[in-house]
Nucleic acid binder design. Structure first.
Lengths: 115, 115
DNA sequence: TATGAATATGAAGAATTTTTCAACTCGTTG
DNA sequence: CAACGAGTTGAAAAATTCTTCATATTCATA
């Protein structure tokens, strides 16, 4: 079953399209981290985190290695960090533009974006 | 209702996570294009394309301007093209790695990726 | 103005993805 | 070896997203 490239791309982006998964990737930018720590940082049920980690593993965005009792995750390539950076920049600009627009229109936003 | 940044990011990626939407963005990289042409290029029902265009509009990734009887779409910022480029590169590398792995293992892939 | 072409929208059902909960695997330690 | 802690997995229910189809809009033109 051949998968056209544009569909592969869509799948790729879709795997980035989940809050927990994004957070995991961002945490891993600073280096490998055991599940325990991810769990502490993300505030989500252990089981749910595992599921999302499984998604990231399946798509080869991260790797997991078991050390004794704990499992340590890491980005499988630093490129991911770069992609996140680009996305962050674009999002920043888009939000800035919107903010500017809102400013111009003097309309209070119903849904503000914070850090 | 405040939206935390990591959630905004997830939403952003999710809107890229659909084959038709990716195709639209890629087609628009070469410049603005009327719906008619998008429709001809994408092979999807007109109504369905409209829905996806609406998603892209809502997230401000594209802009639509009506000229007489036709509506022309355009990327709202060239940054989007850059993001797609980065993603394309990463995907290429990831697929290459997988291909290499498969090669090493001499295992035929069940699901090949083509252009 | 009536008709037609291009595009958009609303709503219902179909399909996918998330969440949740119980059960399970692996090492560790008592 | 039994009991425990760390993670993972499977399956069903809950939530979201897609497709589809009928109906609207909007402009052009007969």
């Amino acid at each position: 079953m051949a998968v056209p490239l544009y569909q592969a791309k869509a799948e790729f982006f879709r795997t980035l399209g989940h809050p927990a998964r994004i957070r995991v990737l961002e945490l891993l930018q600073d280096g490998p981290m055991p599940v325990r720590d991810l769990l502490a940082a993300i505030d989500i049920e252990a089981s749910s985190l595992s599921q999302q980690l499984a998604v990231l593993r399946r798509t080869n965005l991260v790797t997991a290695t078991r050390g004794g009792n704990t499992v340590v995750y890491a980005l499988s390539t630093p490129d991911v960090a770069e992609l996140l950076l680009t996305a962050r920049r674009i999002l920043g600009e888009m939000i800035a533009d919107q903010g500017q627009l809102l400013e111009e229109l003097r309309v209070p936003s119903a849904k503000e974006v914070t850090a």
